[in-house]
Structure formats: C-alpha cells, structure tokens
Computed example of a mutant assay.
Amino acid sequence: MEIMCLNGWGGKLHEVLLPYLNTATPDVLCLQEVVHSPTSDKDWLTYRDGDHVLPQRANLFRDVCRVLPDHHAIFCPHAQGTLWDGEMELPSQFGIATFVHKSLTIIGQTQGFVHKDYSPNGYGSHPRSRNAHGVRVYDDNACRAVSITHMHGLRDLRGKMDTPDRARQAQKFLDVNQQLSQSNDISVLCGDFNLEPESETLTILATAGFTELVKAHAFPTTRTSFYKKSDKFADYMLINSFTAVKKFEVINKPEVSDHCPLFLHI
C-alpha cells in the first residue's frame, strides 16, 4: 500500500501538482490546505490577510477529484471564510481532504478538531481552527487493516515553538486516531504539523508508540525551494510498526508545493 501526505499550498502550483498526482496515484492521499468554493466556478481567487496575499486555486478539491477519478474523496473543512475575485467577496471553505483508492475498502472513518472548533463565519484569529481526519481501510492483498490519520497543525504567528495549545493538539490528534484504530492495525499518523523536529508534539506521539520517519531516515528538509524562511521542517509521518515500512521518501522533485510530498510504502 502506498500512502502520500502533502500540503497542497492552496493549489498555487496546480499546473505541476495535478499531473504529478495523476501519475503518482497513491492508494491513500492525505492532502492539507485544500480549497473548496462550491458557489464559484472560478479557477482562481485571492486570499487576503493583511499583507499576506496568496493566489488560491478556488476549487482545488474538485481539481484533485478530477485527476484521481478512481479514488473516494472526503473533504473536511475547518473554516469558511472569504476569498476575493477582484473586489468581490466569495465564500470559500478551507481544510483537509483524504483520497482513498477504490480498490481499498473503507471500514472506518473519524474526524475531529485538534484546535478550536469549526469557524463558519470567517477564518478566525490566529492560531486558527485545525482538524484531523482518519480512515481505516482493509487491504485485501495484504489481508490486514490500516488506519491513517492526518492533520494540519495550528500555525502560530510567533513561530514553531512548543506551546500548551500544541501539546493539547497532539493529544487530541492521538484521540482522533484512537477512535479509529484497532489494536492489530498498522497505524499511520501524518500531516503538516508546523513544528520543528525536536518538538514536544513528536515526543508525545513517540511515547504513544509511533516512530517518526523523517527523522529516522535523516532527511534534511521537508520544504522546497519555494519556501524562503530558514526553518526547513513542517511535515512528518509516523508509524506504529517500523518493520512494516518497505520504503519511505521525502520527494524533492518535482516541486509541486512549498512542501515536499511524503511517500510511504508498507
């Protein structure tokens, strides 16, 4: 089974991202920073937050569904706010999505908030709402169940330091996974955690029995050349059975986001 985790950067590099996903076609894709604007047929809208202005692929969820037609698609918003078409405001949802190939049987699902709650009337103040989604699938070829849970960790404008909110987020993330996973499952946790490799969060997850694979394989970064800040880590993937890992990669090329895709073959 192939599992990919990626922050899609709101689809900013969609002209590279979509063909890449169409070719890679992982069995399970965990995607963060997904935009869904169901009332708009625009391809592009603009996100504005003070001097933070970004182009957003207005219907990235739709776009990925189209290039992965053989996958079940689940979108989990953590907020509905405003994107802009020139000076026109349009409602748009922002969140995470999970894509599961139809060859796998989905035998369980769960989602929950790891920071704050759903924000229906704007993206909210920082640190903003964040959620997690998990699927439990049965792999007929391997005759086993696999649980995969991902989140987009909260973004703190002060940086990626440990905070009480992040410690609570880690425990809530584990709680979401534990609602889903059974004792004999291979269990995978992943996402854009917005944290450094020495963070308390990764210690909490390690104490719960998970091995973090980016550090274990000594990859030097999970960011691409599009990311200009000095910190070079944000994305992590963990597993409760290290012996099940056949291959793990942080994919540097092609650059499809300011984050690198994480790829796990079990």
Rank of each mutant, 00 (worst) to 15 (best):
M1E: 08
M4F: 14
C5D: 09
N7P: 05
W9G: 00
G10C: 07
H14E: 10
L17H: 06
P19Y: 01
L21T: 04
L21F: 03
N22R: 13
N22Q: 12
A24M: 15
L31S: 07
E33V: 06
V34N: 01
H36L: 07
S37V: 04
S37Q: 04
S40Y: 00
D41V: 11
D41W: 01
D43H: 11
W44V: 08
R48W: 00
D49A: 14
D49P: 04
D51W: 00
P55M: 05
R57Y: 10
L60D: 12
L60E: 11
R62W: 11
V64S: 08
L68M: 11
P69C: 08
H71T: 04
H72V: 08
A73G: 02
I74T: 13
A79K: 01
G81S: 06
G86C: 07
S92F: 07
Q93D: 11
F94W: 05
F94C: 03
F94Y: 03
I96V: 15
I106G: 02
G108T: 08
K116D: 13
K116H: 09
S119M: 10
P120M: 09
P127M: 00
N131P: 11
V135C: 07
R136K: 13
Y138V: 12
Y138S: 09
N141C: 03
A142Q: 14
R144I: 14
S147Q: 07
M151W: 01
G153V: 00
L157W: 00
R158D: 13
G159I: 02
M161P: 01
M161C: 10
D162W: 00
P164V: 09
P164F: 03
P164E: 09
P164A: 10
R168H: 12
A170N: 06
Q171C: 05
K172W: 04
V176K: 05
Q178W: 01
Q179M: 15
Q179H: 12
L180S: 07
S181A: 15
I186T: 14
V188R: 00
C190M: 12
F193A: 12
F193N: 04
N194M: 12
L195W: 06
E198F: 06
S199V: 11
E200H: 07
T201A: 13
L202T: 03
L202H: 05
T203K: 10
I204V: 10
I204D: 00
L205P: 13
T211N: 09
V214N: 04
T222F: 01
F226I: 11
Y227I: 10
K229F: 04
S230G: 05
F233Q: 07
A234I: 05
D235I: 07
L238M: 12
I239D: 02
N240C: 02
V250Q: 10
K253H: 14
P261S: 08
L262C: 02
